[in-house]
Amino acid sequence: MYEAIAFYLFSALTIGLFLITVMSKNVLYAMTSLAAGMVLISGFFFILGADFLGVVQLIVYVGAVMALYSFAMMFFDATRDIKEKNTPAALIFLLGGLSALVLVLIFAGPIHSDAIQALYPMHEGVGNAQDVGIVLFTKYLVPFEVAAVMLLVAMIAGIILAGKKMDQSLTKDTSVDDADEILKQKDAK
């Protein structure tokens, strides 16, 4: 009962928030609704019993990724509304609707669900985090290490790409430069 209420509440809210993310013209609104939608997605994970995944979603997505985006927003002077020449809405709705239909048909269609067997079954009486840890550090050890190297490479790439010429202003606001000039002249006097 409560599971159903939570499911419908979370799904309605996530769909609404992600629609705002996709449709909004303001970067701040889009980012805030994306962060809120991700919090609710972690709610889905908690309903589904994937506790560790939900916590990782909260820490990595809502914590780290959204913080990165908000820092990027500060670089890009994103308080203004974005003017973009969007693709015609009718075409987009047609394509999006068609792909949604195809996806629903794929998922809801008759699959050979009896043939699917649990490769790494969950254990009764063992917490989700322990279960995940055991599988992650035995069966998925090599992908885990590769993911670690990939994150290191991504970190170095981010530093190299973003770190050049960090002393210059990105937004080229001339009025601020003028103010600095005036201040310098006053100091000289």
């Binding site: 996709v22 985006y69 990027a72 973009e84 969007n86 709705f93 394509l95 609707g97 949604a100």
Partner: peptide, 20 residues
């Protein structure tokens, strides 16, 4: 999940700003 994916796909098709 399919609905959410379609919303994201719609955004990818529609947006012209890279951050969006």
């Amino acid at each position: 999940s399919a609905i959410l994916f379609s919303i994201g796909l719609m955004g990818v098709l529609r947006r012209r700003n890279l951050l969006m």
